[in-house]
Amino acid sequence: MTATLQILFDALSLGSLYALGALGIALIFGVMRLVNFAHGDYIAFSVFVLLWPTTEAVSILLLGQLPPILLIPVVIAIGALLSMASEVTVFRRLREANPATMMIASFALGFVIKHALLMAYSSRPKSISILPGLAQQVEVMGARIPLLQVVTILATIVILLALTAFLKRTRFGLEMRAAAQDFTMARMLGVKANRVILLAFAISGALAGAIGLVVVVQTGTADINMGLSVMLVAFIATVIGGLGSLYGAVVAGFLIGGASVLMQVILPLEARPFRDAFVYALVIAVLIWRPQGLFAPRSSRQRV
């Protein structure tokens, strides 16, 4: 029972990270058909601002010194600002370009951010300890669960509920959903393209900041490539969920998180190091079964 609970919390907390990442990618894809490969570097950037920029091996806290009540919103805001800045300086100028051009630009932007971090911090991973309170374990129905997992899961639930309310209940949300289905028609009804897209980037970047916080607390290191694996899985989740479907992206994020944790448990010991091979084989199987994804939106099917 306690083992099952531990597996469940592992699966949900890993799934949470993937779901938030997938949501960040799906939001941008929805409004401008851009797969933003710089997303992982937003995650890394949000983490490195916690540290003083130095190429020495030492790690000195910069924003990491802030009390948690400031630290969390500031890091999330920095993710949002970086994401908005990349829209204004790069993607806005490429809006008429074809999707491949935009995707390449996002790769390039990711490299620019990554190498800027390399210049400022060197490539050595740095140990970093923030929000130490989250390291303790709590007892949930007899099982010892890391507090961080509980907080991650709860925060994800709150974020998902808030985002759903935002999308369903506010005018911005309505405009964003309409733009994701047919941007030109939305604009002909007066929906301001720049505003909707900037907002999508802001939310996406804020999610990247939140992911960065969770990963850094979990691993205790700041690593230039720390966003990469989350970003890749998140990207796969958006495809499995059905490109353009926010709901699908979240569900697929949790499914992949769950599958990874489950494989770790049920695979024979010798096969565990190759867990990802099994997870991705499952991904391929799902895509062969449903190439359009699990929850392909009606509008994008019509577009083809």
Binding site: L174, A178, A186, P297, R298, S299
Partner: peptide, 8 residues
């Protein structure tokens, strides 16, 4: 917008 309600 097929996925929005009629009122939306």
């Amino acid at each position: 917008f097929p996925e929005l309600t009629i009122e939306e």
